[in-house]
Amino acid sequence: MIEVIDAQSCTSCDICVNVCPTNVFDKTDGIPVIARQGDCQTCFLCELYCPEDALFVSPFAEVAQHVDLEMLRQNALLGSYRRAVGWTEETKHRREIDRSYLLFGH
């Protein structure tokens, strides 16, 4: 489930509020808030759409986890999914390296 919005990097663009398919976030006068964490379906799409890598979704789908932002920053976990799918400038070559066609039919 979504666990944290990093206040240091969030620019209040509210993209996460718009793109979350299950409407987990609410806009505020400042940065958005995780208003309905229990509705999160752990699809990781808010992370992909966050241009500042300010969000972190824990892989635990059913239970909330304590996350340590400093540890996430140190381990380069913020934005790791976005880099992996090629949605950053430095990794955009990855958008076309899908090798599923070699895996089908197994």
Partner: peptide, 18 residues
């Protein structure tokens, strides 16, 4: 195969890497 999986479906590895 491991390499192909990684590039083909990065989200599969999120529950493991994290």
């Amino acid at each position: 195969v491991q390499r192909q999986m990684r590039v083909s479906q990065p989200n599969f590895f999120l529950p493991f890497d994290r």
